[in-house]
Design a protein around this nucleic acid. Sequence first.
DNA 1: CGACAAACCGACCCGTTGGTCGGTAGGAGG
DNA 2: CCTCCTACCGACCAACGGGTCGGTTTGTCG
Lengths: 205, 205
Amino acid sequence: MDKNLKRMATMQRMQVTGLNLFYKNGYYNTSVDDILKELSLSKGAFYYHFDSKEDFFIQIAENLLVRKIYSMLIEPIEGHDNPLKLIVNCFEDVLETAVHNEMDYGFVLGNFINEFNARNPKIMRHLNDILKIWEVNLVSAIQKGKFDGHIDRHVDAEGVALYLISSYIGIRTLMVETAPSAQKYKFMAQLRYFLKSIESKPQTA
Amino acid sequence: MDKNLKRMATMQRMQVTGLNLFYKNGYYNTSVDDILKELSLSKGAFYYHFDSKEDFFIQIAENLLVRKIYSMLIEPIEGHDNPLKLIVNCFEDVLETAVHNEMDYGFVLGNFINEFNARNPKIMRHLNDILKIWEVNLVSAIQKGKFDGHIDRHVDAEGVALYLISSYIGIRTLMVETAPSAQKYKFMAQLRYFLKSIESKPQTA
DNA sequence: CGACAAACCGACCCGTTGGTCGGTAGGAGG
DNA sequence: CCTCCTACCGACCAACGGGTCGGTTTGTCG
């Protein structure tokens, strides 16, 4: 039990700094040695715990990455309020965090998808799974909104979810380099317009 | 003169296959040797024409990439029609091309921006320049639309442009792996809604 | 204290990387 | 026919990549 704890602790440390470096420099641009150097660990330790660099990344994706997406993008939109409000607040928060993050390199999941797209099918399956989780949660939030009368009944929930995800991936990419605060502001304004346009119209009988 | 022609021809060949491979595998995942192998040329030829791999990429960006953006995303929205229509048609065309492209790896410029974001400032300056060109052209198209009465006068042209670019970067990323045709369809529907919401309302006196 | 396994070390392997450099083919000009 | 320069060749280099492996530390249990 105690042993298992120590094992877990080391693996956790490796995964955390691994994710940080992969996020910062990209997967292919981060060597196993880079990670080990930061941890003052050796090759032996790494390959004792993980089969390969690829396996290592997949573990990170399934542990840390999923959780990150949940806490950042899914849990905030779970609730019984107007989903449009929840979504706006969620996007606002997450973009605000990015603005104030000195070391922001974009949308973690988005960056990896971009890097592995059509190049590493094995890893892509995992990333797509995570993305899908976000998507279905968005869709069901929107559908609940339709049911509860917050959102117009004619709205295509899947379409809206896809559009939201697309725009989020894009804005996070753009915010990395230029004037994140201003970009966020302009983006959020348009997002609000868009969401307003799908809210259920008061039946002006 | 004749010599200059030959020089240009070789450099052009290198850049074209260089761009293809960079687009396909990413910059860091494509070695100079990979490019040379495809061309049956030698290291000597490469470093005779270009200072470094980085310099090579910058040349590609300034030549081929700019042109690509112009012909795909800028020229189609230049014209005296309703800019909203032009934009919709432009997006429709470019997404349709992606759908039918067996070897689609996403939005060229977007991929590179993602790869170099916050990692290679020198290259990023060039990529941001190209992006800016697209942006200002979008903005001015929208402003012209406002002036000509196609677009509501209260619309923030820069915000709309940013939102369009964001969503485009995102959807192109998403279309690489899963059901591009269906994604395109859903995306375009939402895009139309969004653009409809900023068109100038008929003055229902 | 001794035994034994889990956790970790680091030298080593070998293919690949961006880049260099001395050389050469071949066409233009004299 | 000789010269000269552009365009290209390809062997070579040092650094680095992921991954292996025989060995040592460390903690636990008897």
